[in-house]
Design a binder for these strands. Structure first.
Lengths: 336, 336
DNA sequence: CCACATCGTCGAAGCGCTTCGATTCTCGGG
DNA sequence: CCCGAGAATCGAAGCGCTTCGACGATGTGG
């Protein structure tokens, strides 16, 4: 395996010149650069990553902490991971995968051993024990999901409050005044998951503004759970005409469960789903939805973390505006 | 940040002694080792990964190539990834994520720059262009999925031929003699995907042995696709009494589509699914299934690749025996 | 009681790269 | 015509670790 000295010899220059050709950190004449590039190509030279890391104190690796426990939102996680890897590569970085289970120790380990230049942490809870650890590290980090206190840390997320408002607003415009909300499983709320709560805030705010009566029901991710939630909502508001669903795993069964209660979708009950786009249109009926833009989030996270690499660029919180796509589950009532 | 020299000084020994305490490659007296460990703890010392890699020519990182394009089998991929990461950690290794898109170049890049010690490549096709590249590298590799020619490379997969036989056998034992097979989308077969073909081989072999008439239909992953396949199978064998389904994404709709053709599941048509366990029992009815053991595959892949790390241990192909779990979709006909 | 392993430890030589002066040469302005 | 600035390149000093050979001390068998 060729090393930088071999290349230098072949090109008739010193090793440092080869290094500068590669990094562009000093000016090198065109002719020299060409000779070096030719030598590199001929010898199929690739700088040794370890040596590079040692000498430059940069590994060009981003650590990505992923919730790998099996759950409903696996496809979203995957899409997100894909976006991060792709974007990282376009910044000439690789991605090291860490699991949630490694917890605080895992973060410390990879940061302290200088294995990674930066960290992206998914699925951040409102009060996340990892936050203090991250603050004490001098490895830049970006959180996916906004915690209660994000001081000193960068974070990016969908603007769930705006998403909640947008959903209500859309339904209100169509004339709906009695709306039910089917949420995440109860334990998500108990855990204090920021996004779930922010969504609720947005819903309530907009409901008040638009003179909408809103009933809320958390929902287990099962047929039985869905039945229970629907029952609860219909008990509270027998006349409800629309649902907002923030639980992608109940979408497949929703139509059937509504039929059991003699409500047809979308004629008797309109639905706005908050879910990734590809989940919106793969259940026989195409749901009007507000997208969870995993792709954009991943891309944004990488960009943010990269911008903080050199100096201590200041932390920022970025909320992506919600995007509502009208499909078949929210027909225009007035058009009849 | 403390380095090995600081630790050595604090413990009153030389740097090499600290190194040997950490690696255990030479005998160190208990007292000295204790002093060193104490110093390490007190200073919260972590060896620098880059320096280690440079000096030892080992990064303790495994490269994992994952098909990140959105597809039906995302949950399986994820489970697999989780298993790999977990197992790698228990061997004191981390996992670097690479996408399929990086292709041959990606493999060359990480191997030649000595970023990874070993490679695990998922979703290997029968004739995979990456195979030659992998052979030419001197980075050990393990393939998930057995290609046509696996000379010189290690591979691990479910024994799909045995799985096919097992499914037929189970149904035959229950008295079924007319069986239909619902497969993957046509393009999977066109692509020459080894496992899909091996499954077919197993099915046909066992069908011949057990005097079973078998009809085969590839199946697009959609409601429409499923209807088409079911229609095809019923045209070929109006009297079929059982289905083998190797397409997890049609499981949710299967019962409904069969009802459209006036067949009740499982009374009129028994079903064996070939799918991960958790997909078998999350569709209202619990499918009898042969598991796709993503977890075991991932674990095995890591173990295999680790065993090849030191010298050039010889390559091996490992086929995991299929495991059929009887649930509600293959009732015992005789028991009536 | 000596030759000789064995144990426990140390010092030094790298591993392959980046980066910081230093050096040489060229050129334009005063 | 001289000086200073900039361009282009080199040499050498690390970066923090592993590992090899060496060495004193201790134990062991003849």
């Amino acid at each position: 395996m060729a090393n930088i000295a071999d290349v230098a010899k072949a090109a008739g220059v010193s090793a440092s010149t080869v290094s500068y050709v590669l990094s562009g950190k000093r000016t090198i004449s065109k002719e020299t650069a060409d000779r070096v590039h030719r030598a590199i190509r001929e010898m199929d030279y690739r700088p040794n990553a370890g040596a590079r890391a040692l000498a430059s104190a940069r590994t060009n690796i981003i650590g990505l902490v992923v919730p790998l426990r099996a759950g409903q939102n696996v496809p979203v996680v995957m899409e997100f991971v894909a976006a991060v890897v792709t974007r990282a590569r376009s910044h000439d970085h690789d991605v090291l995968l860490l699991t949630q289970d490694e917890g605080v120790d895992g973060l410390r380990r990879v940061a302290a051993s200088a294995l990674v230049d930066a960290l992206i942490v998914m699925d951040v809870q409102a009060k996340d024990p990892r936050l203090t650890a991250l603050r004490s590290l001098d490895t830049p980090a970006v959180l996916i999901g906004v915690p209660e206190r994000s001081t000193g840390l960068s974070a990016v997320d969908l603007d769930f409050a705006a998403a909640g408002s947008r959903a209500i607003e859309h339904l209100a415009e169509l004339g709906h005044r009695r709306i039910g909300f089917i949420g995440q499983p109860p334990k998500v709320y108990e855990r204090g998951t920021g996004y779930a709560e922010r969504l609720l805030t947005g819903l309530h705010t907009a409901a008040a503004e638009h003179d909408v009566t809103l009933s809320v029901a958390p929902c287990e991710s099962s047929m039985a759970g869905l039945r229970a939630s629907v029952t609860q909502l219909l008990d509270e508001q027998p006349g409800l005409t629309a649902l907002i669903v923030h639980n992608e795993s109940v979408l497949p069964a929703l139509r059937e469960v509504l039929l059991e209660r003699e409500r047809r979708l979308p004629d008797d009950v309109a639905v706005v789903a908050i879910c990734p786009d590809d989940m919106a249109s793969s259940h026989g009926i195409d749901y009007t939805n507000i997208a969870i833009p995993a792709d954009e989030l991943g891309t944004a996270a990488v960009d943010m973390v990269m911008s903080r690499l050199p100096g201590k660029n200041s932390a920022e919180t970025r909320l992506l505006a919600p995007d509502l796509t009208v499909r078949d589950t929210t027909p225009d009532l007035k058009a009849r």
